[in-house]
């Protein structure tokens, strides 16, 4: 077995721990159904996962673009309870590559998988944050002017990702990184392309989509442009972020408030 600690799986560094405290990990309070949730079960579940599931979901369960298998470390799309996850593993997702596990696999093993997947997540309510979400919301829409680029629940700008659910698949640490080091992990959707046409004029915009023979961008005025690659002179990819770094621009406590606000942006959990 690999010695990968649960904290590593959450993508948390020691530094991030100072920002917030995880009080229980994992939390199975709501699911008395799963009797296989000891540390040993989680390890066995991980072992089974690495062997049987990782080829599609990735060795870190963070999904894989090519197989279409989703990230299992954040909020799931098809299940909100342990029993729901159990059923997906047992029955598969019909019409997709997600096949049911072999009928000979004992229930205990499936519950161990459920426990392992559970250990990759955590109950957001158990996370204590230094910042204040309400102050964060005011900053977001006011002084820090985040909303000029980002939409939340249909309000705001188009020059950045919609953040309505950003708390679901990001840890507070991820969110802090996004604010102080935006270039760290830019999704290819938010790269930019600088396109030079054959007359020599240049147009730059977000890389909405690029395929082998064409590309589509959105410019500063939110105009959409589509180009066949063989009709342009050339294009460059800019893989850095257009979002400014707020390191030093905002105080530590303002950053904490924003993180608290962003972390609260999630759908209601229906049990």
């Amino acid at each position: 077995m690999g010695q990968i600690s649960p904290l590593r799986w959450l993508g948390l560094s020691a530094a991030a721990l100072s920002a917030f405290i995880v009080t229980s990990l994992p939390s199975h309070g709501e699911d008395a159904g799963n009797l296989y949730n000891t540390a040993v079960d989680i390890r066995l579940g991980q072992r089974y996962f690495e062997r049987q599931c990782s080829r599609c979901h990735g060795f870190d369960a963070k999904g894989n673009d090519e197989t279409g298998a989703p990230d299992l470390t954040g909020r799931l799309n098809r299940a909100s309870s342990d029993a729901g996850i159990f059923n997906i593993i047992r029955e598969g997702v019909p019409g997709t590559a997600m096949l049911p596990v072999d009928s000979e696999v004992p229930d205990a093993t499936v519950w161990q998988l459920v426990s392992y997947i559970g250990s990759l997540r955590y109950d957001p309510a158990s996370v204590e944050l230094a910042g204040d979400a309400d102050s964060g919301a005011r900053l977001f829409n006011g002084a820090a002017d985040c909303s000029s680029c980002h939409m939340i629940e249909g309000e705001g700008g188009r020059m950045g990702p919609d953040l309505s659910r950003v708390g679901e698949n990001s840890t507070p640490d991820d969110l802090m990184t996004a604010l102080v080091n935006p270039d760290a992990d830019v999704d290819p959707r938010w790269w930019q392309l600088r396109v030079t046409d054959r007359e020599g004029s240049v147009r730059q915009g977000f890389r909405m989509n690029e395929d082998s023979f064409s590309l589509r961008i959105m410019d500063d005025n939110a105009e959409l442009w589509s180009y066949p690659k063989n009709r342009i002179a050339n294009y460059d990819r800019i893989e850095t972020s257009t979002m400014p770094s707020y390191d030093g621009r905002l105080t530590e406590s303002e950053l904490d408030d924003l993180v608290a606000y962003l972390f609260s942006l999630r759908r209601e959990v229906q049990q």
Binding site: E50, R51, D65, E66, P188
Partner: peptide
């Protein structure tokens, strides 16, 4: 990873993960 052979079970001894998006 360390794995024991069991007939009919996957026997791969590990796996992989990408550190970058495919488009990179």
């Amino acid at each position: 990873r360390d794995e024991d052979y069991e007939e009919g079970e996957r026997f791969t001894g590990g796996g992989g993960r990408y550190l970058q998006p495919m488009d990179a």
